[in-house]
């Protein structure tokens, strides 16, 4: 899931300065689950904003997903009545809202931080940088792109501390030590000495994915 956090309050007030009639749109998907942009957070932000500026008219609305236009039916009716929109979805959702209502300025209320997992209520950890060429099969399910400070594919780097932490940050376990240990546990530690060729990083341009079965449908 996508993890986000609220922008500093001052940054939000600065962005919406001058707009008097705003719709704050929450997302019922990831940002609800990561407790950053669901209905409760929308209401909370609006309460703070009106406390700061009593003249501001800011309404709340939550759609189940801002990354799929199937969920925009009711928003389509509301959006034109406002002179600005604040979105509490991830960056993908904010852009989709902005693309739909091009004449209305759309501002992000959140910073989209990473793609990760819920360790506990309110506790999230980054696990994937969506590199597009997953190597987890060879690394015992531990991502070297995300969890190794140098993002190396043929680790460890040689700087691992004696206690198994990363040389860059003593509070972070060395990803490659964890990979070594888990591969050993699984009886396939030989995987670690296979040299991985350099990666052709492909994320310079916007990626578009159409699943195999749907290619014919969108061919034109």
């Amino acid at each position: 899931m996508i993890i986000a956090e609220r922008k500093p309050f001052e940054e939000i007030t600065e962005m919406i300065k001058g707009y008097k009639n705003i719709l704050n749109v929450g997302c019922g998907g990831c940002t609800s689950i990561c407790l950053a942009g669901g209905q409760k957070e929308v209401n909370q932000l609006n309460a703070e904003l009106t406390k700061e500026n009593a003249e501001l008219k800011i309404d709340s609305f939550v759609i189940e997903r801002q990354c799929n236009y199937d969920f925009f039916v009711d928003l389509d009716e509301k959006a034109p009545k406002y002179d600005a929109i604040l979105s509490m979805a991830c960056g993908a959702g904010v852009q989709f809202v902005a693309e739909r209502y091009t004449s209305i300025p759309v501002f992000p209320a959140l910073n989209t931080v990473f793609c990760g997992v819920d360790r506990n209520v309110g506790w999230f950890e980054e696990n994937c940088r969506t590199c597009g060429e997953c190597v987890l099969g060879d690394t015992a399910g531990i991502c070297p792109v995300t969890r190794c400070a140098k993002g190396i594919f043929n680790g460890p780097c040689g700087g691992t501390r004696i206690d198994g932490s990363c040389e860059v940050d003593p509070d972070t376990p060395c990803a490659w030590t964890d990979i070594f240990n888990r591969l050993t546990e699984q009886g396939r530690v030989d995987k670690i000495i296979e040299v991985k060729p350099p990666r052709l990083w492909q994320n310079q341009v916007r990626r578009v994915l159409i699943q195999e079965d749907y290619k014919a449908r969108y061919a034109e």
Binding site: G28, S32, I33, L35, G38, Q39, K40, V62, E64, D74, V121, G122
Partner: peptide
């Protein structure tokens, strides 16, 4: 739409 109705009455999953 049913979720929207629930939301309009402040009924939604209390994830926190």
């Amino acid at each position: 739409f049913t979720r929207s109705i629930c939301r309009s009455q402040d009924v939604f999953p209390k994830l926190d």
